[in-house]
């Protein structure tokens, strides 16, 4: 042991001095470098982590919003389609009703026209008949010379037989 001590010049005072040197290095490094740097790195790490978490949350919110937007859009599309279909149906119905109404009106008009025409025709025929009767009577009176009331009655009868 003594030979080792003398060969290597082991000196407990220098050992203590070197221990003190290391102690100073440890304290200075810990107080001035490691502690504040670790704190800063931790804060930055936390911030980055928070940023990542926020980004994840934002992505989820965005995804949810997109989903909701799609849902709302689909719903609106469906509603619009329904409204359109209903409108189309209503319009078809209305159209059919209107057509029916128009047809009825046209039919009524035609019927009315027909009736009027018929009445006009009857009236015309009656008028024509009266004219014909009077013409026939007048012609007969002119040919036969004299008035006879039976001529008119006969003419009417003959005319009615036509």
């Amino acid at each position: 042991m003594d030979s080792i001590i003398s060969t290597f010049h082991i000196d407990w005072k220098i050992i203590i001095a070197q221990g003190v040197n290391f102690g100073i290095v440890f304290v200075v490094l810990y107080i001035y470098a490691l502690k504040p740097l670790s704190k800063l790195m931790k804060e930055r790490g936390d911030k980055i982590q928070k940023g990542i978490d926020d980004a994840k949350v934002n992505a989820q919110v965005l995804e949810k919003t997109n989903k909701e937007y799609e849902e709302v859009l689909n719903k609106a599309r469906k509603e619009a389609n329904d409204i359109f279909q209903n409108g189309k149906k209503d319009a078809e119905k209305k159209k059919a009703e209107m057509l029916e109404q128009a047809r009825l009106e046209v039919a009524n008009l035609i019927e009315g026209g027909k009736k009027t025409l018929e009445a006009e025709k009857i009236k015309m025929v009656a008028d024509a008949k009266g004219e014909i009767v009077s013409l026939v009577v007048k012609t007969a009176e002119k040919i036969l010379g004299g008035k006879d009331s039976s001529y008119e009655a006969k003419a009417i009868k003959e005319l009615n037989n036509l």
């Binding site: 220098i14 040197n21 200075v28 800063l40």
Partner: peptide, 30 residues
């Protein structure tokens, strides 16, 4: 107390580390 050249070097090391640590502390930025 005998001051050896190795001890002198260690003191220089302590000085370098102190300077580096203080330089780092004063320039610490986000």
């Amino acid at each position: 107390f005998t001051i050896t050249n190795a001890l002198l070097t260690s003191w220089v090391v302590v000085g370098i580390i102190i300077i580096l640590s203080i330089a780092l502390r004063t320039r610490l930025k986000e």
